[in-house]
Simulated scan of single mutants.
Amino acid sequence: MPITLNPYLNFRGTAREALEFYHAIFGGTLNISTFADYQASEDPAEADLVMHGQIDGPGLTIMAADVPAHMDYQGISGVSVSISGDDDATIRGYWDGLAEGGTVVQPLEVAPWGDAFGMLVDRFGASWLVNISGTAA
């Protein structure tokens, strides 16, 4: 099995909505397992929360889960998910999707190094860095 490094995002009760949002943007295959699926819920009210969700798409894997109420949760902070490549149309489509309902921190525009670069926080609180290489100034 090849080694894979990918983001694993944690949410408080919104993992399913976030995964469905990301799936609509990136495509691929979405699989979701709940705490009930593994009889792992300490609180019956949390049985339908996401214990593990995963999107496998072209060139990406995103995993996510809900943090149960009995566990500490500080939100998503201190890390950004980075998307980079040279497929301008595809990556701009990702940018537009992620920006919907989110906050653009740095518009996606030509940066001093010649690539298009932007930063945003999506509507679920995840930070994204987007870089499109080879963009002419």
Score class of each variant (00 low, 15 high):
P2V: 01
P2C: 01
P7V: 02
Y8P: 03
Y8R: 06
L9C: 13
N10F: 00
F11N: 04
F11V: 06
R12S: 12
R12W: 00
G13W: 05
T14C: 03
T14F: 01
R16N: 12
E17I: 04
E17N: 05
E17H: 03
E17Q: 14
A18H: 08
A18S: 11
L19W: 04
E20F: 07
F21L: 02
Y22E: 09
H23M: 07
H23C: 09
H23V: 08
A24K: 14
I25F: 02
F26G: 11
G27L: 05
G27H: 04
G27F: 03
G28N: 07
T29G: 05
T29K: 15
L30F: 08
I32L: 15
I32P: 07
S33C: 12
F35I: 09
F35A: 08
A36G: 15
A36W: 09
A36I: 09
A36S: 15
Y38C: 11
Y38W: 12
A40R: 10
A40D: 07
S41T: 03
E42T: 08
E42Q: 14
D43P: 04
D43C: 03
A45L: 11
A45M: 10
E46D: 11
A47M: 09
A47W: 07
D48L: 06
L49D: 06
V50L: 02
H52M: 09
H52G: 01
I55T: 00
D56C: 01
G57E: 05
G59S: 11
G59T: 04
I62M: 00
A64C: 06
A64S: 09
D66H: 06
V67T: 15
V67M: 10
P68E: 09
P68R: 10
H70P: 00
H70I: 06
H70G: 03
H70N: 13
M71Q: 14
D72V: 14
Q74D: 13
Q74R: 13
G75K: 12
G75M: 11
I76P: 00
S77I: 10
G78F: 12
G78E: 13
V79G: 07
V79S: 15
S80P: 11
S80V: 05
V81Y: 05
S82M: 15
S82G: 12
S84D: 15
S84L: 06
A89D: 11
A89C: 03
T90H: 08
T90V: 12
T90I: 05
I91N: 05
I91A: 08
Y94C: 08
Y94T: 10
Y94L: 07
W95P: 06
D96C: 01
G97M: 06
L98N: 02
A99Q: 11
A99G: 09
G101N: 05
G101K: 06
V104P: 01
E109V: 11
E109R: 13
V110A: 09
A111E: 13
W113H: 13
G114N: 13
G114P: 10
G114I: 12
F117L: 14
L120W: 01
L120A: 02
V121W: 00
D122G: 01
D122V: 02
R123H: 05
R123N: 04
R123M: 03
R123P: 02
F124E: 02
G125V: 01
G125H: 04
G125N: 05
G125S: 04
A126D: 00
A126S: 08
A126C: 13
A126E: 00
S127I: 00
W128Y: 10
L129R: 08
N131Q: 11
I132M: 02
S133N: 12
S133A: 14
T135H: 07
A136W: 01
A136G: 05
A137E: 13
